[in-house]
Design a protein around this nucleic acid. Structure first.
Lengths: 235, 235
DNA sequence: AAATTTAACTTGTAAATACAAGTTTAATAA
DNA sequence: TTATTAAACTTGTATTTACAAGTTAAATTT
């Protein structure tokens, strides 16, 4: 078992309290010194937790005042890595597999430059469709370099986040990444999946995600129907 | 004059070195202890600088290895607040005013909920077009609550960032914000400004930005032609 | 009563120190 | 030579202490 640092525990605790509406929007969190006493840690440690919460948009800090709970996004929080599912809240998000994970060579002219190691190992490819309240929202094509992920193609991906499987079975954690965003006209194929007409605007995200495993990156190309829902993010 | 903290100075120094390619992509920064000696500060302070740089996507940190310079985005970094202009690098970004700042009441059904104070004071409204190498990329509609910003409507906005004017003349700093992103079909009006056909996909951003001044928010509705350039961001 | 000052909070910055944990390199042993 | 071990790095986590700076509310003065 991996040891979870103290500041991370407090982060998770407070985050849980916020998303479960125990601390409501606009509420003042206990002061840093109070949190120190409550959880038996020192102020720098508490500050590390609060800093992370502020960074992730859960709170806002005000010098001399305190930390105020920020309102929860009602929209789909795909811009942040952590907890796509939880960010959608109590809505019904389901995942449907279009193409089960298969191993194949990388596409010519892949959207991101690849290392030699990645090129040699080939890629694990899968297509998924994610539906919110029955409406198809994301058409998601994932690419992972085929390194150190034994038997991944035989796993069940229904209703489970790819991130979750990588975390639970391979101890892979997403650390950060980069992305490009465009508005493009829907192709026939994409339109079929997202139930929209050809030529209608679709949001296209190209993402490269870094992990705690060196040289292991996740790539995904996401087509998003933003007719009804927006993509939401804080900064 | 406001005092700039030490960690901020080191942040700016290193950031400058990175964007000026003195530290190149993939380079290892001096170790934390070396930076301590070089700049005469302690490790927590140095770490605060590096943490901010990592957070802003300039470096990546690796335990046991060091801090590695991350490649610079070639795309347009509008997703991050700081330095839209600088993020574009050496390209020619120009701003053209479509509607000079005027004071008017808020639109009915404004994209974000407004406080009573904001509603009463009315809003400063302006429209701008931003061109990259002569090609119109952003059509930007800005809204600011009309509080404590004397004579702002008479200022020159050509070739100057709105953020810069607020910072230089009113000591207003952007602290963070939230945004929604959509892909929408271009209207006739937007198409005229962005030189694209009606119905072509456009990226639409609705942003609310928080400042160091309480109750002062900036709002903007940005229409973006992503045909040639993508919007880029790290997370 | 109203304005001002003071005190008691809050978060922000910074130092000095210690040990844990991951990475690399050099020394050692098989 | 090859494999292993140990040492010397690196960043990560955590404590303790101190003062600066912004905010609020109570006490004081006018």
């Amino acid at each position: 078992m991996k040891k979870v640092p103290q500041y991370r525990k407090l982060y998770e605790t407070l985050r849980k309290h916020i998303v479960e509406n125990i601390y409501k929007e606009g509420d003042l969190l206990p002061s840093e010194n109070e949190l120190c006493k409550l959880y038996g840690m020192t102020r720098p440690t508490v500050r590390q937790s609060l800093g992370a919460l502020a960074n992730d948009g859960y709170i806002r800090k005000h010098q001399g005042k305190g930390s105020i709970v920020h309102h929860l996004p009602r929209e789909i929080g795909i811009l942040s890595v952590s907890g796509t599912t939880s960010a959608v809240g109590d809505r019904n998000l389901r995942t449907r597999i279009i193409t089960k994970p298969i191993i194949k060579p990388w596409d010519e002219g892949f959207m991101f430059p690849l290392s030699e190691l990645e090129k040699e190992s080939g890629c694990i490819y899968m297509e998924r469709l994610r539906l919110l309240d029955g409406i198809p929202i994301f058409y998601d094509i994932s690419y992972i370099a085929n390194v150190n992920l034994p038997r991944i193609t035989s796993r069940q991906f229904e209703d489970k986040s790819l991130f979750q499987i990588l975390r639970d079975n391979y101890q892979v954690e997403i650390k950060g990444g980069e992305q490009r965003i465009k508005a493009i006209p829907s192709s026939l194929k994409i339109g079929r999946f997202l139930k929209i007409k050809r030529g209608e605007p679709v949001l296209h995200l190209e993402r490269k995600m870094e992990t705690n495993v060196d040289d292991l990156f996740l790539y995904s190309s996401i087509y998003c129907n933003t007719e009804k829902y927006s993509i939401y993010g804080t900064f």
